[in-house]
Nucleic acid binder design. Structure first.
Lengths: 225, 225
DNA sequence: GCAAAAGTGTTTGGGATACACCCATGC
DNA sequence: GCATGGGTGTATCCCAAACACTTTTGC
């Protein structure tokens, strides 16, 4: 094949699983399909990868066009997830999809299209293709990553309270954490610095604000779980 | 692009990083290139992925043809690694390569081609493309995987002694482990069973033989490091 | 003074680490 | 009996887990 037959590559596509936290619920960005196949179903934002562009370039182009979200400017963390190749994305033939996972804060504010929406991961609508599987895979990866890296930073604003940080962990991991143990551990890990600002939120005792020492991916010395 | 221009996908290729242990050294399977580009350099076994075959099917076909190794029959573990897309694999244009990692025992016995050889990972020859980077990535992944799964099983024969098991870990992780602590931990993890057989190896005290309880991927309850 | 969220310490158990000697065999 | 690799136990330290009350503020 490599030597004599004319080489025909499969279709190459890219898809993004974009997470944000809203109201302490983990949400995924979905697009309502306006055309066949799967017209009317919800799908991950994605599209074709042409010759001459990298998968990340293709993703940037395609996600911006379909949703208004810029995966570089509007997200705090992006990583390649997995390449799925068992799906007939298009009735005409076999397609290979390189998927990415991204996390950000307030990403919904960048949506420009009316058929685009964040859905909570635990109440997803009917999904096109194998996108349910891809989201599940991404969620697992995110969960694992939370326990041995500082990935949460991607979901939080620049400053935040310890309670907000704990609620973020709880939302993504899907289980409650002990308040005192959580604070002890997070502080002993040295991931965050206390700022000298406070937040007077509603009407009660103000909370200290913290910031991440390094708002970029770091591996933890001890795992958090 | 998705709508009007004629769609031209990039070239799609697959590459395999196949590990084995030999003489307690971690080795990678390499192919000496007989043609341009990179003629004379060593490269990972790989090739083109045509339309209509999955990446794993393409890999199976290509690796068997170039080396004689059957990635399903001759390896104990295979997983997808990462998709690299920044490389001009071919002077003619941009190529995307889906890479896999595989591990086996005595894989060298299946080599049928004279330009194919296992090299120790710590003394690799001049490598084609970005294959040095891919091997480094695979080695890191393997290392991480060893600490939270039972992946070592893929490198060992059906029965083995505790010393052999320890030496395997040490070879892959690249550092010595304490003998008593290692045995305590491995046994307490319940990954292996003691068989009633012994091995009289050279001429000294015979060693008990062990086997893996489950010779397939499992996640450890406590991490090994 | 009361409602609401912020903040704070101690005890206990288990696993990780460090460390050195005796045992079984073939020659 | 000796050379070689196989096999074993204990003490310490640190981290994880469990657990409840006081403080600060606005009203």
């Amino acid at each position: 094949m490599e030597y004599n037959s004319p080489y025909v590559p499969p279709t190459l596509t890219v898809d993004a699983v974009i997470f944000q936290l809203n109201d302490n619920k983990l949400e995924v960005l979905l697009v309502n399909r306006q055309s066949e196949p799967f017209k009317g179903s919800w799908a991950l934002p994605g599209g074709y990868n042409a010759e001459g562009e990298t998968t990340l370039e293709a993703l940037k182009r395609v996600v911006a066009k379909k949703t208004g979200v810029h995966i570089i400017d509007d997200l705090s963390y992006v990583e390649q997830l997995y390449t799925f190749d068992t799906v007939a994305r298009d009735p005409r033939g076999h397609a290979v999809s390189v998927t990415y996972m991204g996390c950000g804060q307030g990403v919904n504010k960048h949506i420009t299209e009316s058929n685009v929406k964040f859905y909570p991961v635990d109440s997803l609508p009917e999904l096109a293709y194998d996108h349910a599987e891809i989201i599940k895979y991404a969620h697992q990866r995110l969960n694992a990553k939370l326990t041995y890296t500082n990935t949460v930073y991607a979901f939080l604003p620049k400053t935040f309270t310890l309670t907000e940080l704990q609620l973020s962990y709880e939302a993504i991991m899907g289980r409650p954490l002990d308040k005192r143990n959580f604070r002890k551990k997070i502080i002993s890990l040295g991931l965050i610095n206390k700022t000298d600002k406070m937040r007077r939120d509603g009407a009660y005792r103000p909370a200290h604000l913290y910031e991440f020492r390094t708002p970029s991916l770091e591996y933890l010395t001890r795992s958090l779980d």
